[in-house]
Design a protein around this nucleic acid. Sequence first.
DNA 1: CCAGCAGGGTGGTCAGACCACTATGGGTCA
DNA 2: TGACCCATAGTGGTCTGACCACCCTGCTGG
Lengths: 234, 234
Amino acid sequence: MDDESAPQKGTVTQRAIERIKAMIGEGRLEPGQRLPTERDLAARLGISRSSMREAIRALTVMGVLEARHGSGIYVTRLEAGDLLETFGVVADLSRGPQLVELLEIRRVLESTATALAAARITADQLAEVEKHLTAMNATDDPEEILAHDLAFHREIAAAAGNETMAAILEGLSSRTFRARVWRGYQEEGAFARTRREHAAIHRALAARDPEAARAAAAAHVGEVEEWLRAQLGP
Amino acid sequence: MDDESAPQKGTVTQRAIERIKAMIGEGRLEPGQRLPTERDLAARLGISRSSMREAIRALTVMGVLEARHGSGIYVTRLEAGDLLETFGVVADLSRGPQLVELLEIRRVLESTATALAAARITADQLAEVEKHLTAMNATDDPEEILAHDLAFHREIAAAAGNETMAAILEGLSSRTFRARVWRGYQEEGAFARTRREHAAIHRALAARDPEAARAAAAAHVGEVEEWLRAQLGP
DNA sequence: CCAGCAGGGTGGTCAGACCACTATGGGTCA
DNA sequence: TGACCCATAGTGGTCTGACCACCCTGCTGG
């Protein structure tokens, strides 16, 4: 037995969440490791299976656990990508002024990531970036443009060498978020400007010039930011 | 009825999560509004109450919904603080190199926030910052110092005027995160240096000098970052 | 008029059953 | 001998119905 004195604070499910989180924090549960079955865990903590399932569901959406039907429950690798998946929800549900705040954050992080990438990017990665740049300019299908645009920035973020930052930027550029903002932005014929800005970013990367890269990226995001700010103002 | 053709993709609970999220995204559910009862929602989507409860639990940990025992289920205000509460989990469960990445992100955001604060901070807010600064220097209790340290930076982040950024920084400075890193850092007699750095930040804020504020904040976080990097290296 | 209380409605928890899927092992067939 | 197939046990996924703990409202009695 290990039920101890049960402080009785909060709901039963909440306590179960904390206990499992603590087990992982203390290293008693390693990344990738398989947990006991739902039934075992429930019995071990002295709660019903329903409550335990809710706790597991909560940890699942946090990106801490992963349930595989028929196989078992596993601790994720606990890498940035796993833990920050929910970050995209913020972008999807934000509206009005909050969208501007998110773009401001993206401007800061994206410019930093691009500057880092300028100093660290490899020839292969640069070629990949270039591929998306040309592909983006070769089509008129908005869907395809958006896809290559996302990949363009994703590749750069990856080259920056900070996986956590890349994961956050991924969330800040989630498909639905971009689609909502860019729909209006691109309708105003901003394609040409976007292409110029992307070209400037690529040029700075190719020249291995961090300062130029930072400025180009900041300007790129800043353009959208200003446009959105103007949309909300009047 | 509104069960439609049910594409049957993913688990029942997952679909319920998406449906409710979509309702909010489309504006059919306003912030603060009360939802139907669990039993009603379950019947409406044609699933059991257990599955519906798991969906609600998932949306609860995401900070989208809030369940009040005996009263009902409500949509949160959907502000940054609500949605980014889980962000602290990342900091709590990260280890090794990932901690350095998080500090790098904090350095970027904290320096930006401090620079913004230098340009926008009010006299009242500045007085509050100063209060925590002196309180921090007046005690030797590590717990108390940590508390005032957190409040010091929180006040500055609030003065920057970007609530979303403040919420992220809050997560990156969560109590357990700071405690883990600072325990070792402060043991090496870094108190004096920390005080000097905090004083520099306050001076830049009082002088309304964004560039100095940015530099001071970056140096402040950078010190810890470098120390941690060195800890992990050899 | 107001304080106190009782009831109905709500989320929280529990128990047990069955379904859907995965993995493993042994048996079969080439 | 080897590879393939399939029965089977064990796992997460779902459903049902019951009861408990708590909040809120409206009624009642002073």
